[in-house]
Amino acid sequence: MRSATVALQPRGYGGVVQRLSARGSGVDNHAWNAMMVAAQAGDASSYHRLLSEVVAWLRRYYARRLPPAMIDDAIQDTLIAIHEKRHTYDPTRPFGAWLAAIARYKWIDALRSLKAKPTEVLDDDIPVADHEEAITSAWSLERLLATLKPAQSQAIRLVKLQGLSIEEASKATGQSAALVKVNIHRGLNRLTSLLRSESDAD
């Protein structure tokens, strides 16, 4: 009869638990078995420790299977299921396989609930602000300013682009206020003539 109802342990249960143990998660199957046996006998401190360790395992388990927003709910559902069905754990078999079976069952439940609460499908053309013009403008301006004398480009950058006053620009550059004005004037004229010549060429 035993062969007729072969224990069809879903693939990879034991493997998953062992791999996680090996990665230093602190998972010790024998310790978990012992803690669960103690929990079945009513030992609250062992049970608390077991559940705390199980949470870390469950978080990793669901992180690879569910959207981030659903992970906490799935973990809590699984903890409640472990609590309600703790009498079904058989101490002669590994706790990891039992836990993995319950986690998988709750994962399928979570996927079903996801199906029952359909998320809104996003349009392929999501309207977002187009920054292309700003990027192109900034790049073009830098290219034009680079053609000016350093004193002219610096004065234009500080006063016209960064919004400093003539006096502040004068202090920042070490130029006199009158020279700052002259450099701005000459620089803008130079830029205007450059743009005109470029548009003529086009």
Binding site: Q40, A44, V55, L79, H87, D90
Partner: peptide, 22 residues
């Protein structure tokens, strides 16, 4: 609800159980 309070609650509610066997 965070998991720590849930674990505390479940541990506090713990009672000995009679194991189910086939």
């Amino acid at each position: 609800m965070r998991t720590e309070p849930l674990i505390d609650r479940l541990a506090n509610e713990l009672k000995p159980v009679r194991r189910r066997t086939g």
